[in-house]
Structures are given as C-alpha cells and as structure tokens.
Amino acid sequence: MSAPVLMVRGTLRQYRHDFSGALADYAAAQEQDADLAGAHAWRGAIYLVQADYTAAEKECAALRRLGRTVLFGGCAGLTLAYTGHLDQAYRTLQQALAASSDDDHRLWLHTRLGEVAAWQGQFATAEGHYRQALAIGRDDGYLLAAWCDFLLDRNRPAAVVDQLAAWESSDGLLLRLAEAETRLKLPAATAHRQALDDRFAAARRRGDTTHRAEEARFYLRLKNDAKTAVALAAENYRVQREPRDARILLEAASAAGDADAARPVLDWLQASGFEDAGLRQLARQLSQSGAVR
C-alpha cells in the first residue's frame, strides 16, 4: 500500500478513535518516506490525545528537524501546554502563527491559542483569538465547539444560541446549543434534548463509542444523571486523555460523589503539572472530600 493511501487510512482510523491502527498506518507510511511530515504531525497529535508526552516530543523533534516550523510549533506548543508550561506554550504557538500564511493552520493555531489563554485566565486574550479564528470564515467544528464552551464558561448562553442556530446536524454542536437553550429556558431545548437522546441511543446500537465524552456531558448537564455520566466519562478517559476529557470526568465524579472514578485524572494532574485553575479547583474539591483512596 502506498504512503498516501496509508495516510488516508490512518486519518480515517484516528477519526474513529482507532488510535493504534492509525499509528500503525502512519508508521508504515514513514517506512516508505521517513521525512513524511504529515505522518509525524498526526502521530504527535495522537500521542497528545493519549497523554504520552515523551512520544509526542519525539514527533515534534522530527518536525523541527524537517524544517516544518508551523507544524513543529503546533506540536511543541500543545505538548508544553499539557505538561504545565502554559506561558511557554503560548509563546511557541504564537511563533508558529507568525510563521504561517495558510488559513487552515492559522485557524487551528488561533483556536489553540484561545484555549491556552483561557487556561491562563486571560479571557479577553482568549476571546480575541477565537474571534480571529472565526473571522477566517471557514466552517470548523472544533473551533465552534471550543468557542461555545468558552462562552458557556463565561455564562453567555445567548451568544451560543446565536452562533449555533444552523448547526443542529452536528451532535457535538447540538449538545452545546441544547445546553445554552436549557440555561435560557427556551422552548427549543426540549426537542433538542430529545434529539440528542435519540442520537446517542442510535450510536450505542451501532457500537459507535467515539462520542462518549459528549454523551457523558449530556447525561451530566442535561439529564442530571451523574451516575451514568461518570461511567461514560471514565470509559472515554481510558481512550482519550486531553484536558476536556479530564474535565468531564472530574465534573461527573464530583456530581456523583465518586471521587475514586477520577483517580486517573488526579494522577495525570500530578504527573503532568497541567496548570488550568478550573481543573485544579475541581481536583482539590475531590481530594478534600475524603473519598479518594
């Protein structure tokens, strides 16, 4: 199988959360072309999802050796962010942004800079990055989800409704729309909650487990079923271990009074040094509950 075909299959596999299969495809592509930057970038991204930061750093180093300044900056910036170096991460991502003229790269970098700035507590800066990403004018589900999560965290649900009015087809974005509508007590919230319930049930019937984090959030925030939410969030965290995955597990464990379920996240926070104040506060509350063994 040719390297381009392996790259396509690897990308499809990682979108289905078959991370081991995707890593194998990218490795096979690299056997044909050791300098295949895309393979290094995707492998680095998967290792970050899995919280394997040593492996991610090796892929970042390969991108630097290949002279791929923007890809290296994105890879290294996120690795720094996830390992307790937010200030350095922000500078590294900014340097990558300054070096990029590609709109897709710039959208992604502004989005991740927005996340890092929010973790730093620099909310005006974060909003500026999100708005610059939106101004590029590309439809991007990750950007819209991150932006609307930021708005919800800042208690601005009306802005979420305005932003997502035309995005009901996306499960992840419909979740955020329904959450905003529920907060505002809008009539549309009932139908959207039912649509999400139906979609998650259909996904379970066909064995699709790629949206466990969103389903956990649905059960926690919109169905008030913390017991189911914590089980889903724990299952998700065994596969995906990015900060947003850690957050839903901490929130669900706190609501369920099941601090032991959050032990993997508490261990990750201790080992990584991740600096987000919100996650740290949730972790302290759980640790102080006296229920963690």
Rank of each mutant, 00 (worst) to 15 (best):
S272Y: 04
W268K: 01
A3Q: 08
G84M: 05
V70W: 00
L144K: 10
Q32H: 10
R131N: 12
G74F: 06
L78V: 10
A246W: 10
L107K: 04
R9T: 13
R156L: 15
D171F: 10
G141P: 08
Q132T: 12
S100V: 05
Q32N: 13
A191K: 11
A195N: 12
N236Y: 06
L152K: 01
W268C: 02
H192S: 08
G44R: 02
R284P: 12
E235S: 12
A89G: 06
R183P: 05
C60M: 05
R16G: 13
L6W: 05
D103R: 10
F218P: 03
R65T: 12
R91G: 08
P4M: 09
R64Y: 12
A231G: 12
L222M: 09
H211T: 08
A159G: 06
G77S: 05
T11H: 15
T111P: 12
K58A: 15
D225Y: 07
L12W: 13
W108H: 13
A256N: 05
S2K: 07
L113H: 01
P264R: 01
Q88L: 12
D18P: 08
E242T: 11
L220V: 01
G38M: 08
Y237V: 05
S169K: 15
D25A: 02
L249Y: 00
L279D: 06
D104T: 14
A76G: 08
A229G: 04
S20F: 09
V161K: 00
N155M: 10
R138G: 07
G10F: 01
R206V: 15
L134Y: 03
A259N: 05
P187C: 13
R16A: 15
G290K: 02
L196K: 01
Q14P: 09
L86W: 02
C75S: 04
W167S: 15
R138L: 13
G273N: 06
L6H: 07
L36W: 04
D198K: 11
N155W: 09
A178D: 01
A96H: 04
H105V: 09
L6S: 08
E179S: 10
L48A: 14
A39F: 00
L36V: 04
D140Q: 08
D267R: 10
G44E: 00
A255Q: 03
K185E: 15
A145H: 08
D52M: 06
K185N: 15
R112S: 11
A231Q: 10
K58F: 07
A202L: 06
Y142D: 15
E214D: 15
A178H: 00
T92G: 03
I136A: 06
L196G: 02
Q30T: 07
R176T: 02
G278Q: 09
Y90Q: 12
A29Y: 01
R13V: 09
N224F: 15
A89T: 02
R106V: 03
G257F: 04
R183Q: 14
L86N: 03
A165R: 15
R16M: 13
G21R: 05
Y237A: 07
M1P: 12
Q30H: 12
T69D: 13
A99R: 05
